[in-house]
Amino acid sequence: MSPRHGRSEAPGGVTVRQVGIVGDIATVARRSVRSLLREPEALAPALLIPTFFFVVNIGVLETFVERVPGIDYRAFQVPVAIIFAVTGISRASMLVIDIQTGYLSRMLVTPVRRTTLLLGLMVADVVLALGLSIVVVIMGFAFGVSFGTGPLGIAVFLCLAVAWSLAFTGFPYTVALRTGNPAAVNSAFLIFFPFAFLTPAYLPREFMAGWMQTVAAWNPVTYLLEAMRSLLSQGWDAAALSKGAAAIGGLGLVTFIMAFRSLARRVSTG
């Protein structure tokens, strides 16, 4: 951690100092969350898309898939709805606007710790992902879905969803910091499709074509879905949960390295 810089008795008699990392994160997060709450229109697609797919998928496939003994297709689809809701949501568009308007520069001339400019935005992402996940879980309850692992399972389920969402935010933040271009950030959403659809989103892996099974085996979302489904229908499955956590951790490691390197490059004075 870099040393703190401070001085006292500025004109006006106030003490000015560099804040600790937690204080800086709280300050940046406060603004990010407030902006989030002021853009309810931005939340609508994040709720409508998973609701649409959840209802349509159940309507089209439930009867067919439930011919296989042991599958509760509504429970099978709740994790898919969660993935659709929380994958790719981020405050990257806000970051791009800050870059374009010069507000990022305004913050950079303050003693704020540079990494907190991203971490603070991610706090808002966590808040949003948690809110969306809770709504989808409630929707699942409304469709008769229950958790075999009880309240603790629900908590773990939500943690997996939020952690996945956070791990994925590294992509849009990287694009935002590298390009400073809102169109590029919107295009970054396209990476969602292979992650979301080249998976056992509609059917268990064993019913997929051979090549698709191979692709899905390399997709971290496969393990996330299977971990979340285990909490709904199988009870505590340490192997499935470990694989899901590892998938999130692996992706998060890659995307966070990309994002924080991009931040370092963006705020570099060289």
């Binding site: 040393p3 810089h5 560099q18 603004r31 902006s35 800050d98 308007t101 010069g102």
Partner: peptide, 18 residues
């Protein structure tokens, strides 16, 4: 740079506001 930042105020060319 940290010691400079706590001692300066800056209004850049465009009013940089959220």
């Amino acid at each position: 740079p940290g010691d400079v930042r706590v001692r300066i105020g800056v209004a850049l060319q465009e009013a940089a506001l959220d």
